[in-house]
Amino acid sequence: MTRSTMKIERFRAILDSYGARSDAWPEAERDAATALIETSADAKNLLEAGGALDHMLDRVPAPQPADDAYLRRLAEIPAISGHQTRRAARGGRAGSDDHGQAAVLSWFRPTGFAVQLTGLAAAGILGLMLGFSNFSTGPESIERIDASAYLFENPSIVADIELVD
């Protein structure tokens, strides 16, 4: 589009969609819109009115930048996830990648980390209690091991138990 071809209707449509800041206008139409403002009083009036909403939108402050701790967490993703998720993505079984990601992310979250530590501690205590109370082997032992493993994989259950206590 050349500088002289924009009609006032199109200029109005640009303001309605993109607002009055020229850097937000479609690049291909920017010069033509600027030229229209220079020659048309109607375009100038529309521009002034169009700036009011932008003024309101500009009152919302930009979100805070990331802090150093968060950037470190992101940078540590390769080290924490290792190459497991990469292997899974390259042809592991279906869903294994998501499972791996979920596991990695849960370690990153402070709450996830605390719950998992609690889970480890509780599973350890449970194992000791079971070990002292009954030394027999056989099917029951397998059940105990399964129970411990279940607690490892479901730390929220441990959290529930603690709440009851």
């Binding site: 993703i77 990601q101 992310l105």
Partner: peptide
């Protein structure tokens, strides 16, 4: 991208988690 996620989710903590997951996807895929 964190700013974008915060504007979409209107929640900083959720936005941080979403961007973290996006970077994990970048690393793995």
């Amino acid at each position: 991208h964190l700013a974008f996620a915060e504007r979409v989710l209107a929640d900083r903590a959720e936005a941080e988690d979403a961007v973290q997951e996006a970077f994990l996807k970048l690393w793995s895929r």
